[in-house]
Design a binder for these strands. Structure first.
Length: 197
DNA sequence: AACCGGATATACT
DNA sequence: GTATATCCGGTTT
């Protein structure tokens, strides 16, 4: 095993659409008292505030909830929808609401812990969706606003994807034109993406 | 394919 | 205060 260090803050300062693709293959790590759980990021989506009706920061709407999106790149934006927590990485410069949703990971470390947290055995179903991976890694609203560059929640280099696919984002039916933007990226053929691509 | 759960935030009155 | 919407997932038809 090579020693893995968190990516530094400047990695997150590249343009959002590039960062969304460059995060594919990186390792997302969550440390807890129960142990470490991690996985390669295999699917992401970009949300670019001002002109993106699917983004919580659409039209530069700045609220308590979205405040972190307007901050500097490299911080964690968590929110809850229905019964699930979703995790984003803030990107773009300060004062601009841009972020990247982590939609799926490929389990690497702490797989038994993930199985326990998810209450299932099937490896393929542990982390192949944005609400699933947060439960497997125990990412919650507690993590809102943390830097993504140091424990307990951070991203390291991982493997280099062989090929990247892209397409429209998922679950944003009510977002006008924005629903067609090809801002979802995934590692081609990876079995842990949330939907086949 | 439908539907419903149940956290959080924001919009409406 | 009440109503409505949501970057979802599991269960039921």
């Amino acid at each position: 095993m090579t020693e893995l260090k968190p990516l530094s803050i400047d990695f997150f300062q590249q343009p959002t659409l590039e960062l969304a693709q460059n995060l594919l293959g990186c390792l997302l790590v969550k440390e807890t008292e129960e142990g470490i759980a991690s996985g390669y990021i295999v699917e992401t989506e970009a949300y670019i505030g001002p002109g993106d009706r699917a983004s919580h920061g659409f039209g530069n709407r700045r609220t308590k909830r979205t405040e972190i999106l307007f901050g500097e790149a490299g911080y964690v934006y968590t929110f809850v929808t229905h019964t699930h927590t979703l995790v984003n990485v803030v990107s773009g410069p300060a004062e601009e609401s841009e972020g990247i949703l982590v939609r799926a990971i490929e389990p690497v470390e702490g797989i038994d812990l993930m199985r326990e947290r998810r209450g299932i055995d099937n490896l393929r179903n542990l982390t192949n969706g944005p609400g699933k991976l947060t439960k497997a890694l125990k990412i919650k609203m507690d993590d809102y606003g943390l830097p993504i560059t140091k424990p307990p929640l951070y991203i390291t280099t991982g493997k280099i994807p062989e090929a990247i696919s892209k397409g429209p984002r998922v679950g944003i039916e009510n977002s006008g034109e924005a629903k067609h933007y090809p801002w979802r990226f995934w590692i081609t053929g990876n079995p842990f993406v949330s939907r086949k691509g």
